[in-house]
Design a protein around this nucleic acid. Sequence first.
DNA 1: TCTGGGGTCCTAGGACCC
DNA 2: TCTGGGGTCCTAGGACCC
Length: 427
Amino acid sequence: MGCGGACDSSFEVIALIDCNSFYCSCEQVFRPDLLHRAVVVLSNNDGCVIARNREAKAIGIPMGAPYHQYEAALKQNNAAVFSANFPLYANFSNRIMNILNSFSDQVEVYSIDEAFISLDGHSTDVIAYCKVIRETVLKWTGIPVSIGIAPTKVLAKCANKLAKQFPESNGVFALTNTSLIDSALKHIDVDDIWGIARKQAQKLKKRHIHTAYEFKGWNNRALMLSLLSKTGVQLHDELNGIACIAFQLTPEPRKSIRSSRSFKPELSHVDDIAAALSLFTTRAMEKLRKQHSMTQMITVFIQSNPFKAHVPTVRKAQSFGLLTATNDTIVVAKYARQLLHHLHEPGIPIKKAGIILDELTSEDALQDSLFETANANPLMTVMDQINHRFGRDTIHVANHQRFLAKRRAPQWVSPQYTTKWEELRCV
DNA sequence: TCTGGGGTCCTAGGACCC
DNA sequence: TCTGGGGTCCTAGGACCC
């Protein structure tokens, strides 16, 4: 548990390690020629910019920007453009998390490029310790990270932002005493607080609260609760040094699992959408079995292109509850296909479709229904084992090729330098 | 002019995160 | 011509119960 902001000496110490422009940095590791050049990474279908390095941000490329709108600017500035290579990023992420595990016995992997670690027991000189962490990660993986140190997670997020903002910090910034916290929070806008985005920031600004410091000092808790709900009050406490957001050392299984994708070009024929949906179902069920869960609620959705003017946007979804939980791709694929046929109307081009699995339960907490015996299909286990050993989709349940063949392949994927023998770097 | 009171559970949608 | 994907939590309000 944390303590009030006054007791500096007994602060719990949390560090947030955040990889700088993570996807871009991964691409640059194997391309030293790109050092000091603008780099961006694009989403599925090479549609949006989902990562930019410092140089790309300087050109003025916003997060989530449609690529086609910035293509010219990127070319003009000699930027390197990559299609997303998630196996590569996941592999780097695992390496970095492993390194962090050697520096702290309490590591919470928060996202692919972020982790909270506890520095309790390293209290002699946390800044020096974090500098060693930073240098080690950089030396062993080539990925630069920024580290924020503070008594709570929300403050650690703030410290991390400051570490990125001030080059003189050399990537490590500590907010470990009250007066420093106060002066630092004056440099942080309310919408840069973790958990406060556009809508909430608007509400605060209407009440003349513009900086994290002003929010920290706001003492109308009742209004805070009605305005920002209970999470807002938690954030306020965290800014005041009272830890409310617990460490999550072992990841909880997901409560819902989804797989979806946008199509380029759009798909009109129901068989084409069905082929795509069978791939999504396969992926979602792989994730489901990986976390040893079963699902009892299947939702399929389809959407037309919302950006097309003069054409009404179609967004439809339909769910089906199973009598018994299952982890069987074949079973779920069958229901998904039926749901799709209910939803589909001929003549409407579909831009995006997907499947959502809900009502997830643990494999070993199975509840048989009165009429059916729940069981995990042993065929699925065998299929997962074969695919793990010989590569994804070595065997699969339906013809994905129809979808993969129609889809325009991403244009600028880098090799899977670290996860495929055929694509290893030659020296 | 009048139409009880109070509780729980579920769901859709909003807001946020990376 | 071209605009990502996958999560979580919270709340208001409806449905339902006695």
